[in-house]
Nucleic acid binder design. Structure first.
Length: 271
DNA sequence: AATCTTCGCAACCGCCGGAGC
DNA sequence: GGCTCCGGCGGTTGCGAAGAT
């Protein structure tokens, strides 16, 4: 039994990097018909690509609003925490970073963060330490799988800084001919002082996050709404988040989370 | 300057689950 | 209920770029 791969029967199906011309054809089609029904895309566009390839190209590269380039420390923190909570559920993690694709996050984890976390595991440096009373060390933080570990990760979320969500100078929004579709999300700003001591090296980072202000209006992206809550100290929020992460009541939990998020943005949690 | 090695990212592969028949 | 189709996901690979020798 079993179904052959969707592209197995494709005689002359092109593989490899996409050309700008192919990108234009694909985007033009999606602009007219909208994403979805990927099976029909190669048939109707004449692209010699399989449907999966079209979908991947769209979701990972051509989709409007994708941010490319270096991840901010804030994004890194979210990825690390969510990976600790969820494991390699890249799609779920990506849902908290709407401007990043799951593929991007996965690649970034595999090429950067995994090494960083591994290095931290083997060293006494307390990367995430914020206050002596509730410090979370790297060594006890990333022991995978256990509830204890998850709770620790969630606890640590209270301590992780919310840095500016505004596009950093290093991160760039994908540059393609279709940027006009993009709806730039309002910048969420936060005043957050971070003393980075060899952040990318083996040293510890001492983080001071005071007088945080979160700006933006009600149209903030889900990330911008959720992130302050994640970073804030809300027990209720974490219960909901945990429920959701554990897939007990995904819909209810995320609804509740979003509700709290909205409230949070109206009345931001201060550190 | 040439060659080798490492790194980062785009894309592919195979599996899974939901929907429709 | 079983089968097929299709979209989605996570793991892996291949290749070009960058760095090291």
């Amino acid at each position: 039994m079993g179904r052959p791969p969707c592209c197995d029967n494709g005689v002359g199906v092109k593989k490899g990097p996409w050309t700008p011309e192919e990108d234009i054809v694909l985007v033009s089609y999606i602009q007219q018909h909208g994403p979805g029904n990927w099976r029909s895309v190669p048939e109707n566009t004449g692209l010699m690509r399989c449907s999966k390839s079209c979908r991947l190209r769209w979701t990972n590269y051509l989709r409007p609003g994708i941010k490319r380039g270096n991840f901010t420390p804030h994004e890194e923190g979210i990825i690390i925490h969510l990976q600790a909570l969820l494991g390699n559920k890249w799609a779920a993690i990506a849902s908290y970073l709407p401007q990043r694709t799951d593929n991007d996050i996965k690649n970034y984890w595999n090429t950067h963060l995994k090494k960083k976390v591994k290095r931290l595991q083997t060293q006494p440096a307390e990367y995430f330490q914020t206050t002596p009373s509730n410090a979370v060390t790297s060594s006890n933080y990333y022991s995978p799988g256990s509830t204890h570990h998850k709770l620790q990760a969630m606890q640590a979320m209270n301590n992780y800084p919310t840095c500016s969500s505004a596009p950093s100078s290093e991160a760039t929004t994908v540059s393609n001919p279709f940027q006009t579709w993009m709806t730039p999300s309002p910048a969420t700003t936060a005043t957050c002082k971070i003393n980075m001591q060899e952040f990318h090296g083996e040293g510890a980072a001492s983080i001071v996050c005071k007088d945080q202000t979160v700006g933006g209006d009600d149209k903030s992206s889900p990330l911008e709404m959720v992130a302050p809550v994640i970073m804030g100290s809300s027990t209720a929020t974490f219960s909901l988040l945990e429920d959701w992460l554990l897939d007990d009541m995904p819909g209810q939990a995320i609804d509740g989370l979003m509700g709290i998020s909205a409230g949070c943005c109206a009345d931001p949690i201060m550190f």
